[in-house]
Design a protein around this nucleic acid. Structure first.
Lengths: 339, 339
DNA sequence: ATGAAAGCGCTAACAG
DNA sequence: CTGTTAGCGCTTTCAT
């Protein structure tokens, strides 16, 4: 059952293990003849290098963990997809970790009782406080992703949420909307993500001379389209009167679209709606969603670069970087002024 | 930088490595006093067992690969989520692998030049033929998932697609629909998945005395809601006249909903629509989607059981098993007869 | 350019 | 119940 080992190949080719090892790893200083001879032995035996043994010998795992709440949330699924693909460019592979969006899950992740599984970790926390994260001095380097405030000591990559919220709200203002609502933040204990987005939303309104009214905000019981639909439904019954809605994320936008459809409110004619994350979904809703589009590729790539520097030994202060974003304009909030 | 080793703990506690190892792995035959003493040394040193070394020594990786086309496809994202969670019950962890839905990707996966990374693999192919899969006698046990015909020599778990398609089509017939279309299969080279679903669809129609008309089928350029919307739009322009549509998957259903909405065709009043996979999406579209709901949990669990038997040495013929499914009834195709 | 031997950190016989 | 020792398969000085 067990496959051939380096030793077996060496014997067959009549050389030492070292030479075979050199061939396997494409070491430059091997004569063509030797390489040819060894390669034949490898092929004949169907030899596969044992990664685990290699890891133990080198101390390098070739894996990075990418950790977040739940891969079934569209944004994270897309992040996971990008990460798996792009990591190859760095000669790394990705090990996905889910925290189930609980503080216990996040703590277990950070405290992980196993060593040597990954060389480093990209972690998007949603529950742990920055100070708690900073205290847990983990065995491996970590780069933080997302909107949670990050400890100064750690690297962190995110998009500028306040600016993005300002831009997408301004986009609505530019198209003539004035009664602009915000939907999708938490009913209890506002998340940092929601806080930043509401902040940018408010800045845009104020900047345009529109009064930001707390009654324009609709919180939801959970980050879930169904709950959002219920909350919006209720708000409409309560006389919530808007001509545009900035949603915290694409899922909230889907829920909002749903509630508006049910009432026969037309999007975008009566109410414009915007999403956030520009997930694949946003192109296929009816109408398709104007959405904040983070450059996930750039975000991941930069985070990976920072992580590799840490892995290589960099030990300076935390770098806090901003990844680019744009506003993807679609039907739910077009650029043309409202009729 | 390197953490403490088993040896370090042993010295500190004044015992042998073996004893420490026993404590770490909760070996039953250790006296409470000894355990206590060793545990203190572990805590003081902050010792973490090195998984890689353990793997090399035991030959067991504790990982299974779960491989499919693309984790950003909702069904696969949900499968990945279930797999990550449930694998823990088997003391296993999951390594996700994407094939990018290409035959090259699938071949690279099967031929993987590395050994020792995982103990086995759950693989949902979409391109490789069963005979090619069967020939590639991989180093590790593989259990196949999904609708592709599986080689007799290999284990395979799927839901009964023909039966499910029959049931959901019958559901439409029962609610009084007669002009039932099918949307979402490939324009060129029909996939096995589509083939089975169309087969069940046809069986149900024929069984109800309704003639299955090839013109009722609308193929799409790719498994993508936008392409589906375009195809349905075109079909409607060409006079496609239906009162219900069975879609190949939830994404196709979303695209179909979109095209129908654009035409002002009401769902379900004018046309009922069904999806497939019962992804989280199906609850949040407008209207929400009646959809074939595979029991992903049971599917994964059974596949995992079969895989573990193979890993443990079982070497018999392929087991071909069926996982349960049900029809999740929602607004897009309710049970009440059409008005 | 190639060979010999000493680890990498842990487990598993086998003793005691 | 605990200690000793020989691997697991590969990399890596250090010679040659």
């Amino acid at each position: 059952m067990r496959g051939p080992r380096l030793q077996d190949v060496a014997e067959r080719a009549g050389v030492s293990m070292k030479t075979v090892s050199n061939v396997v790893r494409n070491h430059p200083h091997v004569s063509a003849a030797m390489r040819e001879r060894v390669q034949r032995a490898i092929d004949e035996l169907g030899y596969r290098p044992n990664v685990v043994a290699r890891r133990l010998a080198t101390g390098r795992t070739g894996f990075v963990a990418v950790a977040f709440a739940d891969v079934a949330i569209p944004y994270f699924a897309e992040l996971a997809h990008v990460a798996s693909r792009r990591a190859r460019d760095f000669d790394y592979r990705v090990l996905l970790e889910e925290t189930d969006d609980t503080i216990e899950g996040e703590r277990a992740l950070i405290a992980s009782s196993e060593a040597g599984l990954v060389d480093g970790m990209l972690f998007q926390p949603s529950k742990m406080s920055p100070s708690e994260i900073a205290q847990h001095r983990s065995q491996i380097p970590i780069v933080l992703l997302g909107e949670m405030p990050a400890p100064l000591t750690m690297d962190h990559v995110m998009i500028d949420n306040v600016a993005a919220a300002r831009e997408i709200t301004t986009h609505l203002l530019d198209s003539g909307r004035r009664r602009i609502g915000f939907v999708g933040h938490e009913t209890t204990s506002l998340s940092e993500t929601s806080r930043q987005r509401i902040l940018g939303y408010q800045e845009a309104l104020t900047g345009a001379g529109v009064r930001a009214d707390p009654r324009m905000l609709v919180a939801t019981a959970s980050i879930d389209a169904a709950d959002t639909a219920a909350a919006v439904r209720q708000a409409l019954s309560d006389g919530w009167d808007v001509d545009a809605v900035v949603c915290r994320d694409d899922l909230a936008a889907m829920g909002t679209l749903r509630a508006l459809h049910e009432r026969g409110i037309r999007v975008p004619e009566d109410v414009a709606v915007t999403g956030w994350d520009d997930t694949r979904l946003s192109a296929v809703t009816f109408p398709s969603l104007t959405s904040v589009s983070p450059d996930v590729d750039a975000l991941f790539t930069r985070a990976m670069e920072l992580l590799l520097e840490r892995i290589a030994g960099y030990d300076g202060a935390g770098r806090h970087e901003i990844a680019p974003h744009r506003i993807a304009i679609r039907e739910s909030a077009p650029s043309i002024p409202a009729p």
